[in-house]
Design a protein around this nucleic acid. Structure first.
Lengths: 148, 148
DNA sequence: TGCAATTAGTTTCATTTGTAACTATACTGT
DNA sequence: ACAGTATAGTTACAAATGAAACTAATTGCA
């Protein structure tokens, strides 16, 4: 049987390339905070968004982080257990949580942020300033063209 | 307590941006072949690489696809069960498998490839030709700067 | 009002995943 | 030749994940 390649080269295939680059980066970044601070990826994401925007509800954390509500709920539970988060419930709508980092959580957050920024800087260091802004733009476009 | 933001904006943070763009793209691409052909992501990846390079061992599939050997082994088992793959073992080294798509597997592969290419084309359509090659270059650089 | 539909969040359950242990084969140096 | 080490691949186990069901509270509107 003759099989001429129908022309899909995995290594040049954009979804594949994006995913391998991203997976490597995510994995090595996750090592940074999981080893030292014993946080899972969802836990770190919840902390990261609450460090910046305290007072969000779990649902708002979902939309901010593009995470599913199940992992968010579980991460919130764990962070509460660890004493890294405070939770109240809205008076107006008692289903709605109001989440923020506790003192301890904020302390941890301020330790992780410099590591995160240093990591990002290291990543970006292989690009020129022009390339960096070009990358921003391209990611915006890809994201925009992909709004579900 | 005064908390001035230590300066991590999640939405502008490169690892986060890469991961959300990529996850969206991977998820919607996966729907394409999982719904119609009932393939998992690892299964599709194994097929994609064997369609292009028949005769690889499981181990070579791992390095080609950057997948762990466990998901590869499981995907291979499933694809064998479904009759989409042929497996022999090397005479020189009887541990080593020699994998290739079966007739049925190749038939499915030739159906998926055009969908994949159309999907990629649609993705790239939001970019100009210049931006497309710029993106290639930037991904190369990020990957290179990140060789583990 | 009151009942259906919606929303926030949690829990259950089945599936997927990765680490580590294991089997079988091959290689290395003496 | 053979003991020790390395490699290909599989399996077992534990943890992470997501879909769907569930609880509780709120909203809409007849």
């Amino acid at each position: 049987m003759s099989r001429q390649n129908p022309g899909l080269n995995l290594k040049e295939f954009l979804p594949y390339r994006l995913s391998t680059v991203t997976n490597r980066i995510s994995a090595s970044f996750a090592r940074l905070y999981s080893e030292k601070f014993n946080l899972s990826i969802p836990e770190w994401r919840v902390m990261a968004v609450l460090g910046q925007q305290p007072g969000l509800s779990a649902d708002e954390v979902c939309s901010e982080t593009e995470m599913d509500k199940v992992p968010v709920s579980r991460a919130v539970t764990k962070l509460l257990d660890k004493g890294l988060l405070n939770r109240e419930f809205s008076g107006r709508d008692r289903r709605r949580s109001i989440l923020s980092l506790s003192e301890a959580g904020y302390g941890m957050y301020t330790q992780i942020v410099p590591l995160a920024l240093a990591y990002e800087a290291e990543l970006k260091a292989v690009l020129t300033a022009g390339e960096q802004s070009q990358l921003e733009k391209l990611l915006d476009k890809l994201m925009g063209g992909h709004r579900q």
